[in-house]
């Protein structure tokens, strides 16, 4: 299973598309690792600087419809090679979400008021998140604030995560 704990990167925008996650010009790359320096380099967001803000982060919390646009699987890969295996949002583009779980990563949807609250309480502060896969709970902590948030996961998605993705799952089962 991949790592779902660590520091949070808050991206305060809806409709972040796969071109912003990893631009099309990198599609001729033949390794996932090659995508590492280019994650989110075209993201249109005033308060965000890809050169300094991605380093050391393991989780993204964002608004609505994350991963829309082209269905390229390079988007989750670019996150994966940067050790970001968990994205939390109000909702996701369907294929992006499927691609995340296929890679043993998690795309978790939380209600809009919950996300709004997380932005209010934690954004702009150094916040860590710990995932409890047994109880389906995220624990968020920063100086002075602490919160437990429960999440849901379909049985199939959980098994993909436990197996480390669809390749391992299928290889052990079929």
């Amino acid at each position: 299973m991949k790592n779902f704990n660590g520091k949070i990167l808050f991206l305060d925008r809806s409709d972040i598309n796969t071109d912003e996650i990893i631009p099309a010009k990198y599609l001729t790359e033949i390794t996932k690792e090659a995508l590492k320096p280019n994650l989110l380099e075209d993201l249109k967001l005033d308060t965000f600087n890809p050169e300094s803000d991605i380093q050391g982060k393991n989780i993204i919390i964002t608004r609505e419809n994350f991963g829309c646009g082209s269905s390229r699987e390079h988007a989750p890969w670019a996150l994966e090679v940067n050790n970001i295996n968990l994205v939390i949002a109000v909702n996701f583009a369907r294929i992006f979400k499927q691609n995340m779980f296929n890679n043993g990563m998690m795309a978790i949807e939380l209600d809009k008021p919950v996300i709004d609250d997380l932005f209010k309480v934690f954004s702009g502060k150094e916040t860590t998140l710990t995932t409890d896969m047994d109880r389906n709970i995220f624990l968020l902590q920063t100086d002075g604030a602490k919160k437990e948030i429960s999440f849901s996961l379909s049985q199939f998605d959980r098994e993909l995560v436990m197996a480390g993705g669809w390749v391992n799952y299928a290889d052990s089962r079929y």
């Binding site: 294929i95 296929n102 890679n103 993705g165 669809w166 390749v167 299928a170 079929y174």
Partner: peptide
Amino acid sequence: GTTDLEVGILKGVCA
């Protein structure tokens, strides 16, 4: 997508 293709190549199945 690529992961589905990868599993197709490896196991001859797809979901």
